[in-house]
Design a protein around this nucleic acid. Structure first.
Lengths: 328, 328
DNA sequence: CATGTTCATGGAAACGATTCCATCATGGTT
DNA sequence: AACCATGATGGAATCGTTTCCATGAACATG
């Protein structure tokens, strides 16, 4: 029962060369054509696969890239993860996935796990504020933020959707339809959007109409229902994500608000069911998968250098959930 | 610039003991109370974190568990993954995620990546047939299948939803409503469901009404539209997953089939948007997250022994997408 | 011809943990 | 008092790779 897997040493012996030579051949170093040939055939014959374990220890870093998202159950992050996976696969790199639940503490724990594993490249949707990342970044972790950046941390490259433009478009669209009392139903880490929201709305801004939910579905529903009940005079809502949009639709239905007659609704993030909803939801589409892919690309290409980030376009897709302001 | 991270050797020196002792203390071996105390305080002072790299090499296996799903974008697998992550987190284990696209070849590649990484525990939604897993399983990979099993491979523990019962319930429900021409719109790896479908339907079974899509959304839509156009006489559809259900709703809408008046629809897998759809979709709920959690539990607990699998209940949730057979 | 340069090559030293094994002290038993 | 069992301890080997360095050959240049 001697099922030891074949090591580089076996290959070296079988090929009649030293282990160093085998290593060089296999990792593209210099070697004479004949030996290269011989080593390669022998390696193929023995079905030799280098063990990542040995290599990782020697290089004091595990390959692979870490991926931290708030919630893999959320379609948006699912697509983002898919993008990262696609890029990683084309590079043959494994992806270690962790979820933070938009909680700074859990985020820190997940980072610790990654660090212990020797992962030195991370794509993250940051949950905690910038300081949390400070010690991590100084250990040489090359990090790329995706979808949003950590508060007060502009020294980390980030791949973002241009949601500021998205907010402007949406608000302009709604005011163009005659709406004056427009609410923003937000989630964690959307401060930048809200500031644009305020800015675009100008004199129309009403602080009571800006509410935030925590990450969960329940919290989103609670925020939406609370908002609608507390301020029945509002006529339009901008929901900051697909779970918030879902909550808004549900709450509106529960309170017998007809969309778009009583309430116009725009949602961030185009999801397949937006079209199936009745009425079909007007959305601001964000290229979630692209965000993931680009972020992974950046983190893989980064040879120690800090790459520049990217800003990807959003798109207003008009369906049926917005109408002219109701005349009370 | 000497930023070497602190190793077990540093701790040993600082505590005035041997590295072996430190290792034992940290991994729960025997040691005298005083030394244990001393080692622990010193380790804390130096902020020592054991490197998984060294440990992995020595034990010739990386910790962590591999997770293979067809498509992380699919809400069902997202929830399944979430379950796996929840369990893994409570054990402090990292999760390496790979997607197979329901393609045997890609599955094999992902397995190869995991093996190279030294991963020896895998939770997988198998794509390829049983033989593909043969060599893998013999290398000592402890595997648990989730959601479905690989064709002809009953020697691998699996955590499944009792979708056979689900199919029976759904079919009984539809026939009870008077339906006679009932279609099954399936995806990859649903043979077991279809056999129950045939069995339950008995004399009513019509092979033309059993169609399969490949994994993608497009393929699902094509299959649904083709089915509806080719056999306008059918009055009920059982969709084998949320993407297939989505496609069915879309195709029905496109062809001006009213649900449930012209067409009754039941979908496998309860997703949040099923309630938002109009009409709200009647579904067979599957405990995706539980499946993931239980599977991860099994794979973690397995101390070389092969654990027994589990069969989790499904539930018919009646909403508004099924009605009595239309009278033509 | 002597010397320097370039290359292929292999031995050996890392990398950081776990674990085998020998050693030594202690305390109890005959 | 001699002996054995027990338990704590540290040195050293080990895991599989990469990479540093020394060696020697071949070749070019003066």
């Amino acid at each position: 029962m001697n099922m030891r897997r074949t090591t580089i040493k076996d290959v070296a012996e079988a090929a009649g060369v030293g282990v160093a030579t085998v290593s060089r051949v296999l990792s593209g170093g210099s070697a004479s054509p004949e030996t290269r040939e011989r080593v390669l055939t022998v390696a193929a014959q023995l079905d030799y696969r280098p063990s990542a374990l040995g290599r990782n220890l020697r290089q004091r870093r595990s390959g692979g890239i870490g991926l931290l998202v708030p919630d893999i159950t959320d379609s948006f992050y699912g697509r983002l993860a898919d993008g990262v996976l696609a890029c990683a696969r084309s590079a043959g790199e494994p992806v270690i996935l962790g979820t933070t639940g938009d909680d700074a503490e859990r985020e820190a724990e997940e980072i610790a796990v990654l660090l212990e594993q020797g992962v030195d490249r991370v794509v993250a949707v940051p949950a905690g504020s910038g300081e949390i990342w400070e010690p991590t970044l100084r250990t040489g972790l090359t990090t790329v933020f995706a979808h949003r950046l950590a508060a007060g941390r502009h020294d980390v490259p980030a791949v973002l959707a241009d949601d500021r433009a998205g907010v402007r478009t949406a608000v302009d669209y709604l005011t163009g339809l005659g709406h004056r009392r427009i609410a923003y139903l937000g989630g964690p880490g959307q401060d930048s959007r809200v500031s644009v929201f305020r800015q675009t709305l100008g004199a129309l801004v009403d602080e009571e109409l800006i509410v935030f939910a925590r990450g969960s579905r329940d919290s989103a529903y609670a925020a939406a229902a609370g908002l609608f009940q507390h301020r029945p005079d509002l006529t339009a809502v901008l929901a900051g994500g697909n779970q918030l949009g879902e909550a808004a639709v549900l709450a509106a239905r529960e309170l017998d608000l007809r969309v778009p007659k009583d309430l116009s609704l725009i949602m961030f993030d185009d999801v397949p069911w937006a079209e199936l909803c009745s009425p079909p939801l007007t959305v601001i589409a964000e290229p979630a998968q692209d965000i993931g892919y680009r972020a992974a690309e950046l983190v893989l290409r980064a040879g120690g250098r800090r790459p520049r980030g990217a800003l990807l376009p959003t798109e207003l897709i008009v369906r049926g959930s917005c109408g002219p302001r109701r005349t009370v």
